[in-house]
Computed example of a mutant assay.
Amino acid sequence: MRLKGKTAIVTGGASGFGAGIARKFIAEGAQVMIADLNKDMADDLAAELGAGVQAVQTDVANGESVQAMVEATVQAFGQIDILINNAGTTHLPAPMEEVSEEDFDKVFAVNCKSVYLTAKHIVPLFKVQGAGVILNVASTAAVSPRPRLNWYNASKGWMNTATKGMAVELAPLGIRVNAINPVAGDTPLLKMFMGEDTPEIRAKFLATIPLGRFSTPEDMGNAACYLCSDEASMVTGICMEVDGGRCI
């Protein structure tokens, strides 16, 4: 029960790594608001996890939607203690100059602008409380970029730099900010990273991971739980690789 009495928002929380984080947080005693563009999936997971979980449809790249998410969480639970910026997207593998402007804008809106928008609406609440934790879900692509995913790599590099900048600015106010860098996992984004899902392409991806497997939602939940718990009260500004050794 390391998160007992805490309330967390998990963006992109209806599936993949976000769902793994939501499950772990509930198991550790937190209340969770699952914020996701896919309201049906968010509602289904909230119903499965039971008491202490609610869902709200959220477009993390839209300021009004993020504000509504924050208001819904405060109305439901009375407080916000933890923010997980997990929602993310990518473009399909392609030479950098061939990625469309529309796809570029979408990647940076979802992966980067969302971090700005959630900070805009939640950091003021954390300042009043004199406490709060933000965890950004970045990627090993930020540390060791993969070819043909250039603008996705860059967006996650932005998240890591933003994490450190946020951490150093907010530390004197009692607010901690960290990131986790997962390697690819068997989530809805995996097929987009690969372009097509075949045994040969999966084997090629796995060959780059020394521990020989993809990241799982449970891996992300465990890492997120530690970084957001009081056990990590002296930890801020780190970008933890949860990657089976890929970045070595």
Score class of each variant (00 low, 15 high):
residue 153 N to V: 09
residue 195 G to D: 06
residue 199 P to M: 13
residue 210 P to M: 11
residue 208 T to M: 03
residue 128 V to S: 11
residue 203 A to Y: 12
residue 242 V to D: 03
residue 61 A to C: 06
residue 190 L to P: 00
residue 31 Q to V: 04
residue 1 M to E: 15
residue 103 D to K: 02
residue 75 Q to T: 11
residue 90 T to L: 06
residue 175 I to A: 05
residue 58 T to L: 02
residue 3 L to I: 05
residue 239 C to R: 01
residue 5 G to L: 05
residue 199 P to Q: 08
residue 187 T to C: 05
residue 84 I to S: 05
residue 113 K to Y: 15
residue 214 F to I: 11
residue 33 M to L: 13
residue 146 R to G: 08
residue 210 P to G: 12
residue 1 M to R: 15
residue 185 G to Y: 01
residue 22 A to P: 03
residue 198 T to G: 07
residue 210 P to Q: 08
residue 177 V to S: 00
residue 214 F to V: 05
residue 93 P to H: 03
residue 98 E to K: 07
residue 76 A to Q: 10
residue 82 I to L: 12
residue 3 L to N: 02
residue 164 K to H: 10
residue 32 V to E: 01
residue 15 S to I: 06
residue 181 N to W: 10
residue 137 V to K: 05
residue 168 V to C: 09
residue 177 V to L: 03
residue 39 K to Y: 06
residue 105 D to Q: 12
residue 19 A to I: 08
residue 95 P to Q: 02
residue 44 D to W: 00
residue 136 N to Y: 06
residue 207 A to D: 14
residue 45 L to R: 13
residue 61 A to D: 03
residue 111 N to H: 06
residue 83 L to S: 02
residue 110 V to A: 03
residue 151 W to D: 06
residue 177 V to E: 00
residue 169 E to S: 13
residue 233 S to P: 06
residue 231 E to V: 13
residue 151 W to G: 03
residue 116 Y to A: 08
residue 144 S to Y: 04
residue 35 A to M: 14
residue 236 T to E: 04
residue 12 G to L: 00
residue 1 M to K: 15
residue 28 E to Q: 11
residue 223 A to L: 08
residue 71 E to W: 09
residue 150 N to P: 06
residue 117 L to G: 07
residue 121 H to W: 14
residue 237 G to T: 10
residue 77 F to W: 00
residue 201 I to S: 10
residue 75 Q to C: 11
residue 119 A to N: 14
residue 138 A to Y: 00
residue 128 V to K: 15
residue 88 G to L: 01
residue 187 T to L: 05
residue 64 E to N: 14
residue 70 V to C: 08
residue 181 N to L: 14
residue 80 I to M: 12
residue 167 A to Q: 13
residue 59 D to R: 09
residue 23 R to H: 02
residue 152 Y to M: 02
residue 222 N to M: 09
residue 166 M to F: 13
residue 13 G to K: 12
residue 119 A to K: 09
residue 210 P to F: 09
residue 66 V to M: 09
residue 165 G to W: 08
residue 219 D to S: 03
residue 166 M to E: 11
residue 145 P to F: 15
residue 234 M to S: 12
residue 94 A to W: 10
residue 73 T to V: 09
residue 199 P to A: 10
residue 205 F to I: 14
residue 37 L to F: 14
residue 48 E to R: 11
residue 175 I to E: 01
residue 154 A to N: 01
residue 109 A to L: 08
